[in-house]
Design a protein around this nucleic acid. Structure first.
Lengths: 340, 340
DNA sequence: CTGTTAGCGCCTTCAC
DNA sequence: GTGAAGGCGCTAACAG
């Protein structure tokens, strides 16, 4: 391994001079600088960041901890975070927790251990509080993305679950739906709680009842059970539309509906939060689309500001809007009725 | 920050004893071990891996360098690599190069600098050779995933592009297609070259010509140009089927075809390599599906074997099969003809 | 079974 | 403008 000592020797200077050239710190004569730079290139020297980290306590590395790398929402978040990080001279490493608290804890320990400068994190749920407290204890700044955690003070970038939900539900109501079910994510996440609350509130405004609420995981593989329960209702009680808390729940729900020979949207409308991403061949789902890229981009900005002490003392909470995109999965049932 | 010195002081032992407890190395009396462990827990001590790395030259961290995190093929590769790494006591960090050589070089430098134990990499293309040579120079073992690089000796996990292509082309021929176009990826990748070669060979076996070959990027945003060229051909010359080298090219091509009011599969069949992933609501594309998860899983196994000197001296080259999955995007045009 | 010494590669501080 | 000394946190090697 090539070290600054090797460079120093070849250049007939002290290691300190080499260090100064590398870090562009202090004043170095043009001649020695050029000579040193040449030798660095020639020998293919790459600084040892462990050593550097040990003496400076900085790494110029950020970590992005997401809950599901297979979800296009998070891959877009990642692209945004990457771009901002690069632009600011940081490297980004990605950690995928798979919505699993244990994996999250392991990653947090690894990140503290390896000394990243800051962490962007979508916590797996409220139990993540202990992991965030660990970060706090070790003085590692972090930004919360997409999910809030009670009692944890930090910069945050969240979607507007309330408005997004309202738009989706009002859209369904405008289409003539009066019984709308919620297929929610786990209630230990702030997004699921907020979407549920907004769902109930919006229905209430229109004098409708919110009595069909089903729980599941955000990346559930078996929407089947909930769909079965829904379909076991008598035809007069059965909802005509489903509001799914995210894209995966929606996709799995639709697939389960097909298994039971229920057509979407003819017999059941389905809407959800978040788009399906770049491989969506025939965009079909009506969604509340969130600016995922911007979650990552803005979150990284907040984090770097905090790391470099350029942030205001009070924590910043950014709320990004959700846009209603109407597609074929939600149909106007008034028309259907008149037609039949 | 809590160090082994703090622990040592509180426990009335030497730092070395603490180190031994942490690493379960050497013999420690049951009593002191318990006492030290207690204090470690109590103080929330987390080892400093920079320091550890500096003295042991090991990190227990692997890096996975992929070219496109938004592509479901690679997210599945990632899941496989993660699972194997965890299982073997390693952490995995993810680096997304976006098919960009400069980003790849930056990441490679960062990874060397931070001292990962090994690297799994899908190179952006043949130009990546210099980056791989850098890894070799710095004695960092790596495994090549999905794309080969000439003159580079290493463990490899690749798909069977030849067989996969043959299956797709033969399927199209069986459906009655006689003019089949190739929408290929960049020829500086081994996969594109192999698929092109196999495409030509297979057609030849059936006495067909391979004269419509279009080049593009693997994550191209504008299939439009190539589609335009294709559609500008006279109806007798125009291919009736397209073989796309990967899923993104296929999706973009189909979208472009729609823009020009060409229906798939009625007026143009489309097949490709790789599935569309978990958000594919209505699986439609006929594909040669590769076991992406297994790419990551097996690749990680090879890498760890190499790192831990458990690998045979000669490099291992794993070839994983591709499975033909027939769906609606490829239609039997003989039937169409008889019908009309 | 436990402790001491030295060094990993780099940078901060102080000196010239 | 440049150099020397010391230390970051940890562990290998040796000692007892």
């Amino acid at each position: 391994m090539v070290t600054i000592y090797d460079i120093a020797q070849k250049a007939n200077v002290s290691p300190m001079t080499v260090s100064r050239v590398i870090n562009k710190s202090g004043n170095i004569s043009e001649t020695t600088r050029k000579k040193v730079e040449e030798i660095i290139k020639e020998m293919g020297y790459i600084p040892n960041s462990s050593a550097r980290k040990l003496s400076t306590n900085k790494s110029k590395i950020l970590a992005l901890v997401i809950t599901d790398i297979t979800n296009p929402f998070f891959t877009k978040v990642t692209r945004g975070a990457e771009d901002k990080a690069m632009q600011m001279g940081y490297q980004l490493i990605l950690c995928n927790t798979d919505e699993n608290l244990k994996k999250e804890s392991d990653y947090i320990n690894m990140l503290i251990s390896s000394g990243v400068d800051g962490v962007l994190i979508t916590p797996t749920g409220d139990q993540s509080k202990k992991n965030l407290r660990t970060l706090i204890k070790h003085n590692i700044p972090f930004t919360l993305l997409d999910r809030k955690i009670e009692d944890i003070q930090s910069d945050e970038v969240n979607g507007d679950s309330r408005e997004g939900t309202r738009k989706l539900i009002e859209h369904l109501i405008n289409q003539g739906h009066e019984k709308i079910a919620l297929f929610n994510g786990p209630l230990n996440t702030s997004t699921a709680r907020e979407r549920q609350k907004a769902y109930i509130e919006t229905l209430k405004i229109y004098g409708l009842e919110a009595n069909e609420i089903y729980q599941s995981h955000y990346k559930q593989e078996n929407a089947n059970e909930n769909v079965k329960k829904l379909l076991s209702l008598s035809i007069t009680e059965r909802p005509t539309a489903i509001f799914a808390a995210n894209n995966f729940i929606a996709v799995n729900t639709i697939k389960a509906l097909h298994l039971h020979n229920v057509n979407v949207p003819e017999e059941m409308s389905v809407v959800c939060f978040d788009d399906l991403g770049p491989v969506d061949l025939y965009p079909f789902l009506t969604v509340a689309s969130q600016p995922a890229y911007n979650f990552g981009f803005t979150g990284t900005q907040l984090l770097i500001d905090r790391i470099e002490k350029k942030a205001p003392p009070e924590y910043r909470k950014i709320v990004l809007p959700a846009e209603l995109i109407v597609r074929k999965s939600s149909i106007n049932i008034k028309d259907t009725k008149t037609l039949s």
